[in-house]
Design a protein around this nucleic acid. Structure first.
Lengths: 162, 162
DNA sequence: CCTATATATCTTGACGTCGAAGTAATGCGA
DNA sequence: TCGCATTACTTCGACGTCAAGATATATAGG
């Protein structure tokens, strides 16, 4: 019995009038998400990064050459507030991992690009990251992984269309 | 195609040498967890609470009468750092929702209990919370919910035993 | 009994995040 | 063309969280 089941049992005992089915899903998603964070943060730390920095570098890298996006595009892609993105870019700029230049097409906008150092680093980090993630799902069969992915995708789609 | 699939496709294009299967699961868990947070926070806010406060009140309530646990037990049950728990208790004490008394069995320890006001409030909040969670999984059939719960539980158990 | 180690919880400084506000530039409609 | 609304990003204050450190108490072993 996992800990979430223990919690659900407590609620069933204390408030038998409540249907805690959804709490099982929501609780386990939250708990699993939390459980995944620590090992990933540990991997980032090996390269002098954290999740916040990795998020930006990875977004630029997967965007493909010239690995360059506006601050606003980065903010939307990573789903954080604008102040958060400014903070992230500031720190990566100080680290020499990204450059910030004015956008010739819009004077309000900045273009954020990977520096050669940033590019080299993220290419290393993402390999370690992917290996860490593979470890995290090791206890599931390939079929279970596919099922879980599909169900999670369905849950996400249902949320995003409501 | 959900956004995570878009990200996976980007990585497949940019780094075809990497197996991004796990990233699908981990990415969707994270994203779903994030997507669940906002609606729940909104519900808590209707009662003047946030997730941090709700967490403590709910833990005390589901523990059953006398709705009383040590700070350390609360910290372990909610998986936060000790400073975090102190901060949460401080604020709830100010709000008059919990009381803090010394533990007669151990002078280092404090007992945190729901006040009558806290008890009344959490009983209301948990009803709204459960309803909000039900809304969040509405796009899934009962069978899908059961499957998802089982797979998430398996993923959690695998992590916790490694 | 005494001493060393472990434990309970608070304090503290640092950090990342949020939403609101501010400033400058762009887009749209009259 | 001009004025207003919208947009892009930075700044700022508040907040919750973390890990490390501090202090007092409990436990274990000699």
């Amino acid at each position: 019995m996992d800990h979430v089941e223990f919690i659900l049992d407590q609620w069933r005992r204390e408030r038998p009038d409540l249907d805690v089915t959804a709490m099982g899903v929501v609780g386990r998603v939250g708990r699993l998400s939390l459980a995944y964070l620590k090992p990933m943060e540990k991997t980032f730390a090996r390269f002098g990064l954290n999740a916040a920095k990795f998020d930006v570098l990875a977004t630029l890298r997967r965007a493909g050459a010239p690995h360059c996006l506006s601050a606003g595009a980065l903010m939307k892609a990573t789903m954080v507030a604008s102040g958060t993105m400014t903070n992230r870019i500031d720190r990566l700029e100080v680290d020499g991992l990204v450059s910030r230049t004015t956008n010739p097409e819009d004077s309000r906008s900045f273009l954020i690009a990977l520096t050669p150092e940033g590019r080299a680093l993220i290419d290393q980090v993402v390999e370690a990251h992917v290996a860490t993630q593979a470890d995290l799902i090791e206890g599931l069969s390939a079929e279970e992984v596919a099922q879980l992915s599909a169900l999670l995708a369905k849950a996400l789609n249902a949320l995003e269309s409501s």
